Computed example of a mutant assay.
Amino acid sequence: MSIATSSATPAHDPELSQFEHFQVSTLSDAMLALGLKDTALGPTVRLLVGKRILGRARTIGRVPLPSNGGQQEIKPEFSLAIQEVIDGCGPGSIMVIATQGIATHANWGGNMATRAAAVGALGLITDGAIRDLEEMGPLGMTIFAQGTSPRAGHYRFATAIRNEPVICAGVLIRPGDIIVGDADGVVVIDPAQAGAIAAKARELVAVEEEMQGFMRTGATLQDAVRKYKVR
Rank of each mutant, 00 (worst) to 15 (best):
P175Y: 06
S17I: 04
P10E: 05
T44I: 02
V225M: 14
V24L: 11
K75I: 13
F214P: 07
T39M: 08
N111I: 04
G195C: 04
G110M: 03
A160R: 07
Q72M: 14
G147F: 04
F144G: 01
E134M: 10
P150E: 02
S7W: 01
V171F: 07
Q23N: 11
A40L: 12
C89W: 06
V205R: 08
A194L: 10
I97T: 11
S2W: 01
G61V: 03
G50A: 03
T142A: 10
L27A: 09
R56P: 01
L204N: 09
G153W: 01
A81K: 10
P76K: 14
G35I: 06
D190I: 04
Y228Q: 10
K37G: 11
E208T: 10
T159D: 10
A160S: 12
R46E: 10
E210C: 06
F144Q: 03
T59N: 02
S6T: 01
K37N: 07
P138D: 09
I74Q: 13
V186I: 15
I167V: 15
P14I: 06
G35F: 03
K75D: 14
V230K: 15
Q72D: 15
R216E: 12
L34T: 05
G50F: 03
I189V: 15
D190N: 15
A199D: 13
E84V: 05
A160F: 04
L80T: 14
A194V: 08
K200M: 15
N111S: 06
Q71E: 15
R56L: 11
W108M: 06
G55V: 02
L54H: 03
A57Y: 05
L27H: 08
R226P: 00
I102M: 07
F144D: 02
Q193H: 15
L16D: 05
V63M: 13
L48K: 11
L65T: 06
E203K: 12
S7V: 07
E210D: 14
P138G: 06
L27E: 05
E208C: 03
A129T: 11
R115G: 00
A117W: 00
A30T: 04
F144R: 03
A196V: 10
L32T: 13
S17C: 07
L54T: 11
E203Q: 14
R226F: 08
A169K: 03
V45L: 07
G176D: 05
Q193L: 15
